[in-house]
Amino acid sequence: MTFLQATCLLVVAVLGTLVVATRDPLRQAAVTGIFGLGLAALFLAVEAPDVALSQIVVGAIVVPVLVLLAMAKIREHDE
């Protein structure tokens, strides 16, 4: 296992823990975006460019936008 792969794995583990530990959904959306980026770097380090492309695109476009829209709808009802 190369040093790069080991580093990416540890970074992904730490970021995953941070995603769960962040309780506020809005902040968690940002941390999830960074977690997706870390995952994409890991996928590239393991020689999987297709999967890395899909992860970048999904983690940057789909997940944060949907979480923000859901939170907008939920908070609107709270006010």
């Binding site: 995603v19 309780r23 959904p25 968690q28 999830t32 979480v67």
Partner: peptide, 8 residues
Amino acid sequence: HLVHLVMC
């Protein structure tokens, strides 16, 4: 929070 649950 349900949204937090989905991301976990």
